[in-house]
Nucleic acid binder design. Structure first.
Length: 579
DNA sequence: GCCGTTTTCGGCCCGACTGTTTTCAGTCG
């Protein structure tokens, strides 16, 4: 189940959507949307706030605070119920169809009594759209197409897929004569966990050759829109790519604008207005004279607004503008800050590469230490035994000793399984032989919230458990993750000196950014781990780093960015307190 | 409905593209 903040945010968003469909005041609609976002991202549990506390949330005023109180008290909001009674849920679902927004969804509902995606498809096939003003043959075609796409997928792809596609296309575009600069923007540059479409930017005097090449790429399955500054295509895998070509002088402003997020940009524009400036994708201008002020680089644009350059993963309107104005923006952890990887596998369990191969690959990444953490025996299909684990330790120690000339030190660890009661695989005497232990939930994913919370807290209290691996167990787009009171878990981590993992595998990214932000407020430290089962998967660490950045973590918050001596002190401290 | 270094009233980001329009509304990002 979602935490109360998400649940309330969803209700507010639904109300906003329903209001938009009924043609309510657009500013009021936006007010509810903004409030929904603010509630979702608010670090405190909204269900524990009173009216005064609620009104301290940005964008929440008297009216919305009243509605939240009403929801918390009764589980429902009368105004939302009224709106629901007027607009069937299916009509709201219609707006998920690309090219169909609230206005046209409402028309379809009013005039054709369409109230679901399926009914819309029927209506189109029966030709009932034809006598509806504003809906021509092209609209009918686009809607059918959109419905098909909607049914095919959620539309969003994982970060690695998006990154790879973007890099391939950019490699093509960068080869075209006249390409001054190119890069990707949008949610991909902000490194959101999933990407709905990819925004590509090119700086060039003449856009034509780029638009031409873009529509002719092998990736391109269909051209959605084509113009002088923007062209959109859909790839063979159904992903939408948008290409914008900008004058080279506008590169910085364009990159800034198209990187977003939308909410971040609204904040910047508002700030610009206070400075008597106007910000668009073409640059920063004097509001009155229209005289250009800055546009060539992002740094320049931010500087003229009185801000330091804000790293894209932070541009989510989570307070980064205010922090920047006050000189309180964190220096986010970078991939080059990582000195090691603390959760990896070999072919002793379910990894695909041998110990020596994984170690060699890690050494090539320039790490100064590296932990091997194969699965423990309670994950029965891995057939782990004490003997196998001890034999691996001997091999690893030999490898570590043999590498005296090399810099990278090896740590022997394991990935323990947290059982339903919070216990782990081995007794403490055996655990004491490891340099570090990761402990993860692999089974019993449907226990109650109270049970999941208790088991994680109990695992934290084990003096040999150093890191909680992929804390929620979610698989993006496939599995929601366990239902636990994460704030209680975070508090337990902070209290016991247990780190939380940011698992870098693109289908996990667990913890996720918003939970990291909350955990950080509890004083938790983190480990950004690849959880690699293959040599190639070691490189996924970049997505973990991005997720850590989105959670505002500095290198001081991340234990595998620490020198080995400090890391060892952290690992041993927990055992020492216990002893 | 929210908000306040121009404001307690009157604003609220803004430009591009599409499709259906003969001048613009809707959608999107």
């Amino acid at each position: 189940m979602p935490r109360p903040n998400d649940e309330i945010a969803a209700v507010l968003q639904e109300y906003a959507d329903l209001m938009a469909i009924t043609g309510g005041d657009a500013f009021k609609v936006r007010a509810y949307e903004k409030a929904a976002r603010a509630v979702a991202g608010y670090p405190e549990d909204v269900s524990r706030l009173d009216e005064t506390g609620l009104r301290a949330i940005p964008q929440v005023g008297r009216s919305i605070a009243d509605k939240v109180v009403e929801y918390l008290r009764t589980g429902t909001i009368a105004a939302v119920e009224e709106a629901r009674a007027r607009i069937p849920a299916g009509v709201r679902e219609l707006t998920a169809i690309p090219t169909l927004g609230p206005k046209r969804a409402q028309q379809l509902h009013e005039r054709l009594h369409v109230s679901s995606v399926a009914e819309l498809a029927d209506a189109i096939h029966q030709g009932r759209l034809e006598d509806l003003r504003g809906f021509g043959p092209k609209s009918a075609e686009n809607l059918l197409h959109g419905i098909a796409l909607l049914q095919q997928s959620g539309g969003r792809v994982l970060l690695d897929t998006a990154t790879e596609t973007a890099e391939e296309v950019l490699a093509e575009l960068s080869r075209i004569t006249g390409c001054v600069r190119c890069g990707y923007a949008g949610s991909l540059r902000r490194m959101r966990e999933t990407v709905g479409d990819i925004d590509l930017l090119v700086a060039a005097e003449d856009s034509a050759p780029f638009m031409e090449a873009f529509t002719a790429l092998p990736h391109t399955a269909e051209v959605i829109a084509r113009g002088g500054t923007k062209t959109s295509v859909r790839t063979t895998t159904g992903l939408q790519l948008d290409l914008r070509v900008l004058p080279p002088d506008s590169w910085g402003a364009g990159l800034q604008y198209f990187t977003g997020s939308k909410a971040h940009n609204i904040g910047l524009r508002t700030l610009a207005l206070h400075h008597g400036l106007k910000l668009s994708e073409y640059g920063l201008f004097q509001a009155e004279s229209g005289r250009p002020v800055a546009s060539r680089t992002e740094e320049e644009v931010y500087e003229r607004l009185g801000l330091p350059w804000i790293p894209p993963p932070l541009r989510e309107d989570r307070g980064e503008i205010t922090a920047g104005l006050h000189g309180e923006l964190p220096q986010p952890v970078r991939q080059e800050d990582l000195r090691g990887d603390l959760h990896t596998h070999t072919d002793l369990t379910d990894g695909l590469a041998g110990l020596e191969e994984m170690v060699a690959a890690a050494a090539r990444l320039g790490y100064s230490y590296y932990a091997v953490t194969d699965h423990a025996p309670n994950l029965f299909m891995q057939r782990m035994t004490d003997e196998k684990m001890l034999a691996q330790r001997e091999r690893l120690r030999a490898l570590d000793g043999a590498g005296r000339g090399r810099r990278m030190r090896l740590l022997h660890g394991t990935e323990l399984n947290i059982d339903p009661e919070g216990g782990v695989d081995w007794p403490e005497e055996f655990l004491a032989g490891f340099d570090l232990c990761v402990a993860s939930v692999h089974s019993h994913l449907t226990l109650s919230r109270a049970e999941q919370t208790r088991r994680l807290v109990h695992a934290c209290e084990n003096p040999y458990v150093n890191i909680i691996g992929h804390p929620t167990g979610r698989l993006i787009g496939r599995r929601p993750g366990i239902d636990a009171d994460l704030d209680q878990v975070f508090a337990a981590c902070a209290r016991t000196g247990t780190a939380l993992e940011i698992n870098a595998q693109p289908d996990r990214l667990d913890l996720r950014d918003e939970d990291i932000l909350r955990a950080r407020r509890h004083g938790v430290v983190f480990a950004v781990d690849s959880d690699a089962h293959t040599i190639g998967a070691l490189g996924a660490i970049r997505y973990g780093v991005a997720t850590a950045q989105r959670g505002w973590l500095t290198k001081d918050d991340v234990l595998n960015a620490w020198p080995l001596t400090r890391l060892r002190r952290f690992l041993l401290a927990k055992r020492t307190v216990h002893a």
